[in-house]
Amino acid sequence: MVRFGFVFSMIATVSVATSAFTQSSSVQTAVDKNFLAIETAVAEAGATPIASINHARLAKAEGVEMPASRVLIFSDPEINTPFLEETVRAGLDLPLRVLSFDQDDRPQIAYTDSQFLKVRHGLNDIQALNTFQSKMLEVLNNLDATPAPTNGLFADYGVIELRSQLSVPKAVERLRKAVMEQDDTVWFGEVDFAAEASHLGVELPDAVLLLFGGPAPGGVAMAGFPAIGLDAFCQKLLVYPNEEGGSVVIFNDIAALAELNYGSSAEPHHGLNKRLTATFRTAIE
Results as ranks from 00 to 15, higher is better:
G46I: 00
G46T: 05
G46F: 08
A47V: 10
T48M: 12
P49Q: 08
I50N: 08
S52D: 11
N54S: 06
H55A: 01
H55P: 05
A56H: 02
L58S: 09
K60D: 06
K60F: 04
V64I: 02
E65R: 00
P67Y: 05
P67K: 04
A68E: 04
A68Q: 02
S69V: 03
S69Q: 01
R70I: 05
R70W: 07
R70C: 07
I73G: 14
S75H: 14
S75M: 14
P77F: 09
P77W: 07
P77Y: 08
E78A: 13
E78Q: 13
I79L: 13
I79K: 09
N80F: 06
N80D: 11
N80H: 09
N80V: 09
T81D: 09
P82Y: 09
L84D: 03
E85W: 00
E85V: 14
E85D: 09
E85K: 04
E85Y: 04
E86H: 05
E86W: 03
T87M: 09
V88T: 00
V88N: 02
R89V: 12
A90S: 06
A90G: 05
A90L: 01
G91D: 05
L92K: 04
L92P: 03
L92V: 00
L92C: 03
D93S: 09
P95I: 15
R97K: 14
V98Q: 15
L99R: 06
L99N: 10
S100M: 10
D102F: 01
Q103A: 08
Q103H: 03
D105H: 01
D105C: 00
R106W: 00
R106Q: 03
Q108R: 11
Q108K: 10
Q108T: 12
A110K: 14
Y111Q: 15
D113F: 06
S114M: 07
Q115D: 13
F116N: 00
V119I: 01
R120E: 08
H121C: 03
L123W: 04
L123H: 04
L123C: 06
A128Y: 08
N130M: 13
T131K: 13
T131S: 12
Q133R: 10
S134T: 15
K135N: 12
L137Q: 10
L137N: 13
E138Q: 04
V139I: 07
V139K: 07
L140E: 13
L140G: 10
N142W: 10
D144H: 10
A145T: 14
T146F: 15
T146C: 15
A148E: 06
A148T: 07
A148W: 08
P149M: 04
T150F: 02
L153P: 00
F154N: 02
